[in-house]
Design a protein around this nucleic acid. Structure first.
Lengths: 152, 152
DNA sequence: CCTTGTAGTCAGGCTACCTTACCAAAGCCG
DNA sequence: CGGCTTTGGTAAGGTAGCCTGACTACAAGG
């Protein structure tokens, strides 16, 4: 729903940079020997404890339904990066646990994000990258304050 | 695929702010009497000329297939914001033309984006919003230079 | 004309979500 | 203890937003 100068459209810019970040990350992770991972798998790893976590706990943190989340876990499991084991403390529950390879990929992924940000800082200045993050956070706070969350 | 401090994760921040922008925009447009529009309809309006445009032209500018684009046009047409009329100059082609209401919504949408940015500027400073845009553009250029486009 | 190219549609498929309905174990609670 | 409710997870089916491949209708050049 906009605009003459599309290369300058904030929505497009935000989307592009997000895409750039994700693509570059998964490109490097794949190149390092951990192929098959897609952006949507990020939700599995994002909050995943190295010792494993409850499925529904991860789903809730990700803001997804258990079903949707469970599907991603199944995919990532099929790729060999995690396994689902019965929770010894609760017969209903299952723990999502990274395999050794999964743990490596997890750590590498986080590393790559840090690397990328460092590279950007070298290219355009540490303070500008910091300012980017800070500005984004402030705008988000501002906007969140404006539209009260859907009543909970 | 990350990270401890998730509120600070750049990917999440970029996504959040993009969402904020889109949601607030469509909220205001709907509140102003133009309901039913969704973010995915943006592609129809984004490059739409006030006098109408060719479907395939819009599709190409949007980086989508004609089929996918055509579906969005059909949706937006069902909402009464555009019509598809045969192109008088080419019997194969059709022109996507905004209805009067569509034209109003189109202009309002662009207005709202400008308003929002101005409001942000008032809240956190003009130069910071400008810096945000500029930094995003630079990072995108940097990253685009790094990964050469899929050979064309 | 007849061939080749272009504009748009139709059919079908995939991914990433959702809702509704269910099962099975856990946790009260009388 | 036996039943009721809650909770963890799965199953089935649906939707939005994209894709590819196959097709039709018209255009345009020999």
């Amino acid at each position: 729903m906009s605009a003459i100068a599309t290369d300058q459209h904030l929505v497009a810019l935000l989307e592009s940079v997000k895409q750039d970040l994700l693509e570059e990350m998964y490109r490097r992770v794949a190149a390092a020997g951990y192929p098959g991972l897609r952006p949507s798998h990020g939700c599995v790893f994002r909050y995943l404890d190295v010792d494993g976590s409850r499925l529904s706990e991860l789903a809730e943190k990700s803001g997804m339904t258990k079903q949707a989340f469970g599907e991603h876990v199944a995919n990532v499991e099929a790729l060999g990066y995690v396994v689902r084991i019965p929770d010894p403390e609760d017969g209903r529950a299952k723990r999502v646990v990274p395999t050794p390879r999964g743990r490596e990929a997890l750590i590498l992924g986080r590393q790559v994000f840090a690397d990328l940000e460092r590279e950007w800082a070298e290219a355009i200045g540490v303070e500008r990258v910091a300012a980017l993050r800070e500005t984004l956070r402030e705008i988000h706070r501002l906007q969140a304050a404006r539209s009260p969350l859907p009543a909970y």
